[in-house]
Design a binder for these strands. Sequence first.
DNA 1: CGAATAGGTTTATGCCGTACACGGCTGCGT
DNA 2: ACGCAGCCGTGTACGGCATAAACCTATTCG
Lengths: 319, 319
Amino acid sequence: MTEESATAEPGRTVELLWGAKESPGRTGLNLAGIVAAAIEVADAEGLPALSMRRVAERLGFTTMSLYRHVPGKAELIELMRDAVVGELDLSAPDHSDSGDVDWRTGMEAWARAHWTLHLRHPWLVHTAGSRRLPGPNIMADYERALQIAEGTGLRASEVVAVVSLVAGFVKTAAQQVHEVRHEERESGVSNAQWWRGQEELVERMGPYPALGRLWHAGAFDEPEDPFDFGLARTLDGVELLVARRHRAENRDEIRDVTAPQPHPGQCSVCGAEFAGPRRGRPRDYCSRACQQRAYRQRRSATSASAGAAASDSSAGNAL
Amino acid sequence: MTEESATAEPGRTVELLWGAKESPGRTGLNLAGIVAAAIEVADAEGLPALSMRRVAERLGFTTMSLYRHVPGKAELIELMRDAVVGELDLSAPDHSDSGDVDWRTGMEAWARAHWTLHLRHPWLVHTAGSRRLPGPNIMADYERALQIAEGTGLRASEVVAVVSLVAGFVKTAAQQVHEVRHEERESGVSNAQWWRGQEELVERMGPYPALGRLWHAGAFDEPEDPFDFGLARTLDGVELLVARRHRAENRDEIRDVTAPQPHPGQCSVCGAEFAGPRRGRPRDYCSRACQQRAYRQRRSATSASAGAAASDSSAGNAL
DNA sequence: CGAATAGGTTTATGCCGTACACGGCTGCGT
DNA sequence: ACGCAGCCGTGTACGGCATAAACCTATTCG
């Protein structure tokens, strides 16, 4: 998986990524052509099949000729990443209405755009996304995501974390789907067929009661769409945080002012709206059940993470 | 990166994973030793440094000797996966209290256990997790996760999706952290240092206003812990779904969750219209009798519906 | 006109996974 | 006791990989 990065001067690669002049009239090899050919190979045959040889052959040149234009394979992949991110449409920033409208629809659109990108270029999930030298397209895309996430009104560090979370989710979902697809292709057995074939196994060697129950309930016959399901949960989770923050803010304001108003509330656990008491302290939860849930949640949040988990930071990757 | 899997009979590998007898008295090479050595190499030097040669050297044998015990590298990695998952502690099933207590703390514990596993074995994120031939430890762990997720009371397909979501999140979070760590090691520059070095860049070539704002707000100096933050959001998202389901059930299935409805109601059992209370929670039933009918109905409806024809499906990976 | 330079090529090095043929050992049926 | 089969470790070899270094040739520029 390559893994090695630019051994030479970093200035060279930044020039490749950002300079991008490359007089277009030339006849022979050029950077754009190499990158395009590499993307074609990777799209068609996967990252492991991507080699300098294959790219050079496709272009009708010798292997080593590529090295006149690209420092090495790692940099080539970096260039490929930036190139495909350039396919994304960054338009529809916040065109109309109010300024910070609806971070959620924006975030969802961003996620879905990346999702289709991953479907088009399966090899993306196997690339590292180095913090070093993010190309211009990647930077623009990251900026876009941050702008959207800023609409949540969360703290700066949380905004960044939200973008990482959503980007990470998309990547994982793509990974999972491609895994299944890859195995289907390789074995010629569709996933459904495979699970059906496992029926005997599941039933016979069944010290797996839960798996058995779920299997019999059809969980694997009519599965949830992993992307839609996961994205909804993830954004719900973010939205809940946002709602809690807003509530906390508004609470202060309202309390300072003359309070008695029939407080319509929004449950800080399930988000449902409910009619609060007309006087007295406004309720936080729509039901005893949600109150209990919140308690458990609070309790579990106190447990420190066992792992060392270097506190050094970890801003890292968007795409 | 290998990518190829068992070209030979699949029966062989399943035997390796599950058979595991391997009379322990033998002096020479054995499967367990090979797997252990491979794990040591991968832990210490990363997956790309893992080669059959390196493993063999560490054991004092020739490269080809390994092939007497393992069909190939792909299978060796599969064995490594299963072996490290075996390190997990599957205890604390649902020891006490009521049956379905607190899926959330269970799920969080499961996630944290996997998190430390990924910190201990960074190469895990680069392995595929094939649906074929999951080893016994992986199966047991998956079963465990499903059991926990069943506590949500969600539908079968959703339970599976929840496990995939959480497992995927852990993997992604680990990936992001290892990426950063790897680059730090490689470049000798800590992440914080790097971002500080970017200050000029961000400011100078700043068509990145959001990035600039967040940077100045210290988002990258004191970032959120990506694991804790993401896990909380993810589980919040799931919990929201659970809460909504409970509310919907209690309220009797239909009816929009967000619409509290004006007071005059229509009995959801007999359909009769009736005048509801002028304030407080609107009633769902026109009479105590209908309420009771609904209860009985709900109780008998516990029987699961049989899954129809199998669609494409996409169950996939846990770990 | 001479020299520098950019672009493409050739050759070589050292990794990698693994196919294949071989040899020594051990145990079993005769 | 003998032969033979099977297991286990070995040696050699092949094709593929990234890439370092030297080389060859036009074009360009002083």
